[in-house]
Write a protein that binds this DNA or RNA. Structure first.
Lengths: 227, 227
DNA sequence: CCAAGATTAAAACATTCGTTTGAAACCATC
DNA sequence: GATGGTTTCAAACGAATGTTTTAATCTTGG
């Protein structure tokens, strides 16, 4: 036993939560997988709820710190000027995709996280809301500054949609198989694919109902479109 | 008691599954909500698993039939010519959004469905895969015909991302509140928002790694972009 | 080396779960 | 209005859950 019991339990719980969900994963499954005693969970964490929070907190805090660090770096390089939307997307979603590709780090965790935004369980939702509060505030401000012409409500919806696409990108490999044989082994390709899609969706023309109220300056030519 | 026990159980289960998830919803919660006896579930459906399948099947079959009907209508109007991507998106995602807005029909159900594509439970995934098999085959064929220049694997990923955005659009109102105060009461606005985002993502420039292999004809001018 | 604290172990705890049982109540048909 | 099939009901079933308890074991500082 090279690692201590506490981390073995966290690792086992993380894996099993991804495979079976939070509720369907029992403490006995976790302690068996971790080669620990059943009572160890309540000794080290206090309860199953507290264990779940610990599993999330262990990696989520670092992820959001990376996000904020990436955003801050862009902002300092820009020196007060608004960032390009692509940079903000990169800082938020790109960091997540990279973490999802890190086999030693949060690969399994990101699968879990991606499915948890819409988690029905009450305490998980409130817990995640607290963990995300700061990073969301920072990125909302950056986006609003970068896209002053887009109504804020409109943007929040698009951000929400982008979260959905991210969630499926990292957690939905099972659901993907429903679509047919597909290769999900290349994280670099996934990164490129998701970024293209997100930018495309973010910068799509506004719905007619709101677009007509907004005047737009000319824009520089862009790359060829997919379809 | 105007409706019969069987449908009261289905309705109660549907609501509670959305609110608490499949596992966390107990048969006793369901029968209490439905004002039915505990044994009624096993009498009418046989088991909890069978009840879950019945809840899904009751509305999912009709939804996918509507999708196929909408696609067929477009195809017949086109008379053998490839459809516009927008039409195919409308037939698949638009129908879903409309059903999600139908307060008397599948509003609560669509919330449940949106969260279930990434369901960890094994039998739900396999069950959904069967239910979706036909509609997926039809829409894949239509998309491939409409977008002959887009590599199929690339498109399947985009379709997957679009499913994620749809999922969040209809089921993630709780998660949305995390982003701040927002109005999710207007289904027409949601429809327009999601369609813009999906089309924008679908037609985004391909990632550089694949785009360089493809020559594209000129395209007609488009509406002003959001950002 | 040994006492004190931290950790692990085995067993049992009270609840709760999905399911089953067997009788009561209902309901249409003759 | 009796009959036979359908549905509801109260109660109990065994199994499994998270948690607690108590003792054994390991670890560590003096």
């Amino acid at each position: 036993m090279e690692t201590d019991t506490r981390t073995r339990i966290l690792d086992a719980a993380e894996q099993l939560f991804v495979r079976h969900g939070l509720d369907a994963t029992t403490l006995r499954m976790i302690t068996a997988e971790a080669q620990a005693n059943l009572a160890g969970v309540n000794y080290h964490f206090g309860s199953k709820e507290a264990l779940i929070e610990a599993v999330f907190r262990r990696r989520l805090t670092g992820l959001n710190e990376q996000r904020i660090a990436a955003l801050t770096a862009f902002e300092e390089a820009a020196g007060g000027a608004p960032l390009k939307p692509r940079q903000i997307v990169e800082a938020f979603f790109g960091v997540a995709i990279r973490m999802a590709a890190d086999r030693n780090g949060g690969q399994t965790f990101m699968r879990l996280l991606g499915r948890s935004y819409t988690e029905p369980t009450e305490f998980v939702r409130t817990f995640l809301a607290e963990e995300y509060a700061e990073v969301i505030a920072r990125f909302k401000a950056a986006f609003f500054k970068a896209l002053p012409d887009v109504p804020q409500e409109e943007f929040l919806w698009r951000f929400h949609f982008m979260m959905g696409a991210l969630s499926y990108a990292i957690s939905g490999t099972e659901a993907l198989r429903m679509l047919g044989p597909i290769d999900d082994a290349d994280p670099e390709a996934l990164y490129a694919r998701l970024m293209s899609f997100l930018i495309g969706g973010l910068r799509a023309p506004l719905p007619d109902s709101v677009a007509k109220h907004i005047a737009k300056p000319a824009r520089r030519p862009r790359a060829k479109r997919a379809a």
